[in-house]
Computed example of a mutant assay.
Amino acid sequence: MDAFLVSTGIVALAEMGDKTQLLAFMLAAKFRKPAPIIFGILVATLLNHGMAGALGTWIPHLLDAEVLRWVLGIGFIIMAIWILIPDKLDEGDTKFVSLGVFGTTVVAFFIAEMGDKTQIATVALAAQYQSFIAVVLGTTVGMLLANAPAVLLGNKFASSLPTTWIHRVVAAIFAIMGVAILLGLGSYLGL
């Protein structure tokens, strides 16, 4: 349960102001059809984070436990720093309009998530918890918690959120997790 809850919370918070949330706003404004957009986000996230979770659960089988501890600890600290860097939406993220609302959303979200903070976080969380299903479901729920309101409420919702503070809190969580893992305290904290 820890893997699911931590994955959900971290991704939901990390997604605030992320480029995929900006993409959700753009798709909602362009198509004005929330149901296929939200379903497209769900499918794209399950596919993308499914691959990331599989990689994350595979990595510990390749690395010695001590090396893995250092890789994960440093990785979480790098994520803490990366979270503080604001995202910008690339023009290429919405070029697939001929695929319809659902298809455009799936392709655009899948591509936008490649190498994104939340995808990398999914790899790290799956490696840490060794719980593919709990992590992928958690990160997917987190994506939906952040992006479904973006689709449903549009720019009014985004402008009222203190994204700078949200990013700082998420960065602090990642930093604490990284330091705890490096100090060998991860198991005491449920990591």
Rank of each mutant, 00 (worst) to 15 (best):
M1F: 12
D2G: 06
A3Y: 00
S7T: 02
T8C: 11
T8R: 00
T8E: 04
G9Y: 00
G9R: 00
V11H: 01
G17A: 06
G17L: 02
K19W: 06
Q21E: 06
L27T: 04
L27M: 10
R32A: 15
P34R: 06
P34H: 07
I37M: 02
F39I: 15
F39Y: 11
F39C: 09
V43A: 12
T45I: 08
L46I: 15
L47C: 12
G50V: 03
M51Q: 08
G53I: 06
G56D: 06
P60Q: 09
H61C: 11
H61K: 15
H61G: 15
L63E: 08
E66A: 13
V67G: 07
L68Q: 13
W70Q: 08
W70V: 13
L72V: 14
I74C: 13
A80Q: 02
I81P: 00
W82Q: 14
W82L: 14
W82Y: 15
L84V: 09
P86G: 02
K88A: 11
L89S: 01
D90Q: 09
E91I: 11
T94K: 13
T94G: 04
K95G: 12
F96E: 12
F96D: 07
V97K: 11
S98G: 11
V101S: 04
F102G: 04
F102W: 12
F102R: 07
F102D: 03
T104N: 12
T104I: 05
V106K: 00
A112C: 09
M114G: 08
D116Y: 08
D116S: 13
K117N: 04
T118H: 03
F132L: 11
F132S: 02
V135S: 01
V136C: 08
T139G: 07
T140F: 02
T140G: 09
T140C: 04
V141S: 08
V141D: 07
N147G: 07
N147Y: 08
P149A: 08
N155D: 09
K156E: 13
S159M: 11
S159K: 13
S159Y: 06
L161K: 00
T163A: 03
I166K: 01
I166S: 00
H167E: 05
H167V: 01
V170I: 04
A171W: 00
A172M: 12
A172R: 03
I173L: 14
F174K: 03
M177P: 05
M177I: 14
V179C: 10
G184Y: 05
L185M: 14
Y188I: 04
Y188M: 05
